[in-house]
Design a binder for these strands. Structure first.
Lengths: 128, 128
DNA sequence: CTAAACCTTGACGCGCGCGTCAAGGCAAGG
DNA sequence: CCTTGCCTTGACGCGCGCGTCAAGGTTTAG
């Protein structure tokens, strides 16, 4: 299949596919007229990239998964490098959760602080 | 005080302060030679901006807080517009927490089982 | 007098994953 | 023949909050 059909079947754009190729994530055969030619295996690679991006991994982070599939493994995350990416991302997510939880509590506190303005001295807290 | 001293006292850079001015967040008097001149009130404004940025608010979101302080209020978050920003940000944070929690569970599942199952439909997992 | 250390405006760079022209080649239908 | 709809490479745009020169002017210390 050519790039347009691959894009359609993967639910993405030709621009994205060409970008993946420029980043060395996706390769393509070329027909005599210079058109890119893909097969179902390439579709599988693109879907792998998409699902990983959906989880918040960067394109760079998807590299080991793609390499793992290219190496013939059934799933992209069965290789050590891929699993290391998972672990690193998990640590990032945990840190992010902590930070956001703190931010959330800060916001709740600030919102609650002046809500009792109806009870407090109206000269100190202005609610308009 | 001039811009260098304000930057030092606020723990930021002159570039940031000039950028705030270009965004209409910070104003400055000018001396005869064209230098910006600030006072303690401006320092207060800058600190307000910084603390809000630390919570994850964009510069645009700090605008109501600065305006609130300029209007003479004791705290930047005592005005309705500021509180609305707080509420909107809280909703964002809550949504982000939900997404990150889902991502975390996905990562844990993938790491736990050597033989992984297929990914669910790719949804948006974009979190700051 | 010179050098250092301030200040000014203006403009480009960066990360990241593409979107969006631009300018053209190739293949097939009418 | 022309149009339509694919395809090619190349290059700039975007968001956001500044960093980082560039090319000067001003003030102060020695």
């Amino acid at each position: 299949m050519r790039i347009g059909e691959l894009a359609k079947r993967a639910g993405t754009t030709t621009r994205a596919l060409r970008f993946y190729e420029s980043q060395g994530l996706l390769e393509a055969q070329r027909t005599s007229n210079g058109y890119r030619e893909y097969d179902d295996h390439d579709l599988r690679l693109v879907r792998e990239i998409q699902s990983l991006q959906a989880v918040g991994l960067s394109l760079e982070d998807t590299r080991p998964f793609v390499a793992c599939l290219r190496a013939g493994h059934e799933s992209g995350d069965s290789c050590p490098d891929s699993r290391e990416v998972y672990r690193r991302k998990l640590a990032e997510v945990d840190a992010c959760l902590d930070r956001l939880t703190a931010v959330r509590e800060f916001l709740l506190a600030r919102l609650a602080f002046q809500d009792p303005c109806l009870v407090a001295d109206p000269k100190e807290f202005q609610c308009s």
